[in-house]
Amino acid sequence: MAAPQAQHDSDDGMDEFMDKFKTERYKNAFSEKNWEEEFDNIPMFMKKAPEEIDPKKHPELACLQAIIHDEDRPPEEQAKSLKDEGNVFFKEKDYKKAVVCYTAGLQKKCGDQDLDTVLLTNRAAAHFHLGNMRSALNDATAAKKIKPDHLKALIRGAQSCIELRNFAEAIQWCDEGLKAHPTDKKLQELRAAADKHKRAADRDARKAKLKEKKLHGEKEALLAAIKDRGIKVLQSVKPRQRGSDSEVEDEDEGSSAAMSQLNLDGLSSQEATGAQVILDEQGSLHWPVLFLYPEHQQTDFISAFCENNCFIDHLAVMFGEELPPWDTDRKYHPQNLQLYFEDEGKETLYQVNPETPLLKVLQHKRCFVKAGTPSFIVLVKGSPFWKQFLTGRKIRGL
């Protein structure tokens, strides 16, 4: 009768435990409000690994990481674990972390050539997606050095070369790959793309070379035209003190100094005006010309003043039916205007007849074109400012 009594006591104990379980809440259960967040802290069910693993917050994950990176394991096992970890980051498109893992795997120097090749190729892929094409090419090259016929290394090397616009090198990568994998479609597509890009780049290079040659010929013709006309061009304009030794003292010195510097830089006024002297198909020069109105501190700019045109042609347009708004006294009529160019070296103003063609003025022995733009002072004859401006200055005619 003892045994049945013991069984009865055991049953009574279970009933008591079940009654207690129903009335008391399980202490380690998930909360109803945050169960999804708590569930995501379990390594097996994590959707994404945290940026930094806090052992207090993620003890299970920290334990797993310690197992993965156990330094007591053989280097080959450690490298393989790091490769697998990098692959996880790669699939999550976290390419920076993938590069870190593959690099750590390579640093183990496990001696397994197959594994090292995979690590290099995978790191090349991660670098490729990060836009680090040179690093991707370096890794693909290193992988190919270990295993010359490794397909992924060959593909990644060709892709990197195309992105780096090294199309001839990309074709070489594809040709090497197709020797080992003659039917691989990806290599065939990459070779076709590289060849197409190379032919387009070669065509563009030929066009650029022809264009450069044409521009060079035009520049030479322009310089020759200026030189043949005896026009004196100063390459740069530097402030000079009046009476200093750096002045242009006579015709011969000025001409030789100017012509020795005659080049395209000396003809460019693009920084100031956006224009430059040009030689048209008929062999005529068109100059950017600046008119200065010191009385009102105003200027006019003519981007293409043909050397055969007279000054009056432009003055009649600029001061024709409508006078400029700054001419409040309405006195800037073509018949009232006097023109001058300044010879700084001689401290002299040379008066220009408005009926004179531009070429004749530019050929004057004391006329020097500065910064590629001839400039002329415009005054109203007989005005108070005209008298004041000319007082104490040397005035000469052409």
Rank of each mutant, 00 (worst) to 15 (best):
H296F: 15
V317W: 07
K97N: 11
Q351H: 09
A200Q: 09
R229N: 02
A136M: 06
A170V: 12
E344D: 00
K83C: 06
C63S: 11
K144H: 07
H333M: 09
G217Y: 09
E52S: 04
D184S: 07
S246K: 09
D116Q: 12
K214Q: 13
V248H: 01
E355H: 03
L390N: 01
A158I: 14
A124Y: 08
H69E: 13
C310S: 08
T348N: 08
D116M: 11
E307D: 06
E218L: 15
A168P: 03
D204Y: 05
T299M: 10
K179W: 01
P325F: 08
Q338A: 12
Q65R: 11
I302C: 09
A49E: 08
H286E: 04
A66I: 07
D84H: 02
V380F: 10
A275C: 12
A66N: 09
R203G: 04
H69L: 14
Q363W: 08
D343A: 10
P384F: 14
G372D: 07
E71F: 10
K83F: 12
L379T: 02
I162M: 15
A201M: 14
A192R: 15
K179R: 04
M318D: 00
K346N: 06
F376C: 09
M318L: 15
R123L: 11
R242V: 05
N166C: 05
W35G: 01
K365E: 09
D94V: 13
L285A: 06
E253P: 02
V99R: 01
L292G: 01
R240G: 06
P294K: 04
F291E: 01
I302E: 12
A371Y: 05
P384R: 11
D300E: 05
N122E: 10
E344L: 15
